[in-house]
């Protein structure tokens, strides 16, 4: 994984984490308007970055992403691989 991909993925991961955290908070505080606004804002941001990321680097999900001529979903690295977020050396 190269610099630009890692930078974009890190940004997406941090926004998606905020979404998870706000989701859990809202489950037990469903009428907190400020949290709902924050949730909606993060979902919008996530959608934008996701779209750009998938156009440049391939699908994040098999279910909601389209593929180019070859089936890109299977391409290495997978998230648990050591080089998934380490810059490829050499």
């Amino acid at each position: 994984m190269h610099d630009q991909q890692e930078t974009m993925l890190t940004e997406l991961m941090s926004i998606d984490f905020a979404i998870i955290e706000l989701n859990l908070y809202l489950d037990t505080h469903p009428n907190d308007q400020r949290a709902i606004e924050m949730y909606n804002m993060n979902v919008q941001k996530s959608k934008q970055i996701r779209e750009q990321y998938e156009m440049l680097f391939g699908p994040l999900t098999a279910r909601y992403s389209t593929s180019k001529k070859s089936w890109q979903w299977i391409s290495n690295p997978w998230p648990w691989n050591k080089n998934f977020m380490n810059r490829i050396e050499g």
Binding site: M13, D16, L60, T61
Partner: peptide, 15 residues
């Protein structure tokens, strides 16, 4: 469920 091809938090272990 739908699998997302990323981790919830980065794991980058050198050693």
């Amino acid at each position: 469920w739908v699998y997302e091809k990323k981790l919830e938090y980065p794991i980058k272990i050198k050693n």
